[in-house]
Structure formats: C-alpha cells, structure tokens
C-alpha cells in the first residue's frame, strides 16, 4: 500500500560546547552558529524517506518557523522528501499550544487538498525548547492515535507496528492507520544528502501557509545559565603511569 507521510521538523541552532545568550536574555546568540533540524526529527525525515521507498507513496515535510527555515525544509527534500511546506511566523518562538494549533490547521488544509496522511511523524522533543508535547497535541486535535519515544516503525497491511525504547528493551504497540508517532534518534542513521538530492532541493517549490497565532499560555521571561560549581580539574597524569591515581579515585567513590 502506497503511503502518504508527513514529517514535522523544527529549525534549531547547532551549538558547540558553549551557548551564549543575547544581552536581553531572550534567545541564544546565533551570530556565530549554524542551524539544523532537531536530531530526533532528522531521523523522522529519514524514516519517512525509507518507508515511502519500501511501500511507495509520497512524503511531505512541514515546519513552523521564520522564512529562513526553508533551509531545513530543503535539507529534508535533499534527503528524499517530496514536498516542503512552511507555516511562516515571525522570528519569535511559539509555545507548544500555539505551535500545535497552527500545525493542526496546516495539516487540515493539506489533507483537504491531497487526502489524509497515513502517518504523521514528529521528533520526540525539540533540541532547544524540549516541550515533549506538540505531536501529542496535534494527534489529539486530529483524533488520531499517537505514541512517543518510537525507535522502530513497520507498516503492515492497514496498520502499523511501533516499538518504544524503554530501559530494559522495547514495548511493542500496534496502531490502525492513520496514526501519529513521535520518534527518537536511533530509529535509523540519517543519510548524507547526495548531489542529485541537493540539486532537486535547490529548485523545489516551497508552499507557504500563513497561520493564526493562538495564545498558548506559556511565555518566556528570560533565559539564563544555571549556576555552575567552578571545579578545578585535578590532573592525574598523562598516560599509563596515571593508572594507580585513577584506581584511587575508583576507591574514593566506592567502586573498589
């Protein structure tokens, strides 16, 4: 059965070892940073490409963000996604309720035009905001079953088998289609886009949808760094001769 799959992604900064805040403490200073798709969502994109590769069908990538988030849609298209849709906002962050409401409206619009999505994939949580809820809210608004923490998806006949990673293994769920899943990194290894994919992505038409902003109820006052204990690093040595000193640390923490 050919599948119609939607993947929702978010543009986020790609920080290195340190995060610097702007002077007004409202956001991360991105002057010297690149942007990327949240890691779980990059895997959701790869999963959609693999599933439509196996079963046939089409895939669409959707994001809510500023105009420049087209970059992340084109990255997804270069990996093999067929269509890109931008729900265009100003550059402000929308909270989970506002984001979910706008995505639900956009999905309803797209489905009225091209038919229902069999599968809608989200990342388990975004790297920056970490709200852990947008996919569940959208699924609830669309009245579709949803599972989170998914590390394996197999479409079988008119249903789908999903596996959720837990501490000591996997939980297996069987859902009817259409369904929604919030996936986690580890479900696959995302491909590096090939030259052909990048050429297709460069020329791809991106559909723009203008959303209405619902007031969600959670608003930022300021961002700040947690207080860090300034620990002086104690150097135990430079090679094999440090082994006894390391073993003494093992003793101190009660391992030996």
């Amino acid at each position: 059965m050919a599948l119609n799959i939607l993947v929702a992604v978010k543009r986020v900064p790609a920080p290195g070892a340190k995060i610097v805040l702007t002077e007004d403490a409202q956001r991360i200073d991105t002057k010297h940073l690149g942007f990327t798709v949240s890691p779980h969502e990059e895997c959701a994109v790869e999963e959609a490409v693999q599933l439509t590769g196996q079963h046939g069908g089409e895939s669409t990538v959707l994001t809510l963000g500023p105009e420049v988030a087209e970059e992340q849609l084109r990255t997804a298209i270069s990996m093999g996604i067929n269509h890109g849709v931008l729900v265009a906002t100003d550059d402000e962050e929308w909270d989970a309720i506002a984001t979910a409401a706008a995505l639900t409206d956009a999905i309803t619009t797209l489905e009225a035009e091209r038919g229902a999505f069999d599968l809608i994939l989200f990342g388990n949580e975004s790297a920056d905001a970490g709200n852990y809820q947008v996919g569940v809210r959208v699924a609830h608004a669309l009245d579709r079953p949803v599972v989170s923490g998914i590390k394996d998806i197999e479409v079988t006949g008119d249903g789908v088998t999903m596996k959720r990673a837990v501490d000591d293994g996997f939980e297996v769920m069987q859902l009817p289609l259409p369904a929604v899943a919030a996936v986690k990194e580890g479900i696959n290894l995302p491909r590096y886009p090939a030259m052909r994919g990048r050429l297709i992505a460069k020329k791809a038409q991106i559909r723009h949808i203008t959303p209405e902003q619902r007031q969600g109820g959670l608003s930022r006052v300021r961002l700040r760094h947690p207080q860090q204990d300034q620990t002086e690093t104690q150097i135990l040595g430079t090679g094999a001769e440090a082994a006894p000193a390391v073993a003494r640390i093992f003793e101190e923490v009660g391992l030996l």
Binding site: T231, T233, Q234, I235, L236, G237, T238, G239, A240, E241, A242, A243, P244, V246, A247, I249, F250, E251, L256
Partner: peptide
C-alpha cells in the same frame, strides 16, 4: 577536560589497559 573533576591528559589506548591491570591487581 576543563569541566571534569579529574583528568588524565593522555591516550586512552595506553591508559585503559594499564588501568584494567591495576584494578585486577587491587
């Protein structure tokens, strides 16, 4: 390294075998 409590500034491939022997000896 700069954020750790302790550090060994060397090659893990040299330290770890010595460390395994040290732990076994103890």
């Amino acid at each position: 390294v700069t954020r750790a409590d302790y550090a060994v500034l060397g090659d893990l491939h040299e330290l770890l075998p010595a460390l395994v022997e040290e732990v076994k000896a103890r």
